[in-house]
Write a protein that binds this DNA or RNA. Structure first.
Lengths: 235, 235
DNA sequence: TGATTTTTTGACGGATCGTCAAAAAATGGA
DNA sequence: TCCATTTTTTGACGATCCGTCAAAAAATCA
């Protein structure tokens, strides 16, 4: 028993080790620069061994995304603990999202690669499900806050609008905003310097549009952001 | 002289031909399925000839994106001609954006591929600039409508908010929304069926948040969408 | 027509992929 | 401890795609 467990642990450890090395390479050299030979070489191991753990490099990339997605879930969970009205907690989520892309700058690049259909197609169904599950955890945390707002009366949604719609809106604009920020110099051409602040403001306007009280015009959410940063994500 | 022109035309024609064949392959087989040998083979031409026109497949993909981006500009220009208040014209732009992704379903896939830094890095500076220029044309059309709204008093922007910020917001949520729609089945998990309607509603909420009159709560923009579809993009 | 320039060709060397038979290591029973 | 059996690791291999370039073919010109 103990032997089996040790063996299994060793395998798990190496799985982690592969991800660690692969993330390093991906960060430095991107999708095209990451290849199995390189991973194997950096790990002082034969190529075949890597294939024992992951069927191809796309699978490794997907595994990396799941790994960081779990980090994000943890950060979002922290944010949910923030003391304040639902909309303040949502601001804390925004704060977490910002910190996440700063702390894990390679995650968005992973997402972009995985958004290419011919790339994601090479990965296993299982790992894809794992990623969807990891995403759903985050989405549900956010949806929970929206529902709290509805329950507390801060947010009055018409019958044809579901809480998930609000989540989808925040998700879209945040995802879109960060995407445009990261890869396009169109932004610079538009004269926008602080992309994070921009996304924050856009999201605030969006929530104002849904009538989520207190509106950003009557409450200082920048202050809330700073408090969230200090209180929850100190260090 | 006439000879030179004819020769040049032939070269241009083949450039187009490459794009046509490549788009076909890309649509069917995606990024990983598109390769120079295949393009050459389908064109009954040697591989070296393809390289005379485009330095690698990434450059072809970028050229394809520029091509469709120009189509989008044309559609946005049409939308700008729509008769109505600025916000109605903006709705017409939204309509154009929708029709665009329907008419050119491969464009978003191209965008996704090109958003990967290690892929775009393989392309030429010049073609990248061409893409940025094509994007900027669209952005400026949208920005023009925002400025019209400000000028006409329909939209009162605080001094710290620039019209470009509004554009960025729309851009983000639309880009983000369509991205999530296209590649993720997270959406289905969230129980969202009509992604287009969703993006439309989100954008309306966002503009409501900016206080752009008439608000979507006091005006039927769905009606405007349908009119835009009928009037401008008939057929 | 034949010399010169331009264009096309596809074979080639190099990189990466994913596989698999053989080698090495681990396991387990005597 | 030893050796037979199972599991894991190894890296050579064939296949694919990349981008190049010298030679062949075509076009131009005098």
């Amino acid at each position: 028993m103990a032997t089996v467990t040790r063996k299994q642990r060793e395998i798990l450890d190496r799985q982690q080790q592969v991800l660690k090395v692969a993330r390093q390479i991906f960060r430095q050299r991107g999708y095209l620069g990451l290849n199995m030979d390189r991973v194997a070489h950096e790990m002082n191991v034969a190529k075949g061994t890597i294939y024992q753990h992951y069927k191809n490099k796309e699978e490794i990339i997907l595994a990396l995304a799941v790994e960081t997605l779990d980090k994000r879930t943890a950060m979002f969970e922290q944010a949910c603990l923030f003391r304040g009205k639902p909309r303040e907690r949502m601001a804390a989520i925004g704060c977490a999202a910002e910190l996440f892309v700063i702390r894990f700058p390679d995650h968005f690049e992973l997402e972009k690669v995985l958004s290419c259909s011919s790339i994601i197609e090479k990965t296993s169904e299982n790992m894809q499900l794992a990623k969807t599950a990891a995403e759903l955890k985050c989405i549900n945390l956010v949806a929970g806050i929206v529902r709290d707002a509805v329950a507390s009366g801060d947010l009055e949604l018409p019958s044809e609008v579901s809480p998930d719609q609000v989540v989808f809106g925040l998700w879209s604009s945040t995802y879109g905003g960060y995407s445009i920020m990261g890869c396009d110099d169109t932004l610079r051409q538009m004269g926008i310097d602080n992309g994070f602040k921009m996304v924050r403001d856009i999201n605030n306007r969006l929530l104002d549009g849904f009538g989520w009280r207190p509106l950003s015009t009557e409450f200082d959410y920048d202050e809330t952001y700073e408090r969230a940063q200090r209180e929850i994500f100190a260090g």
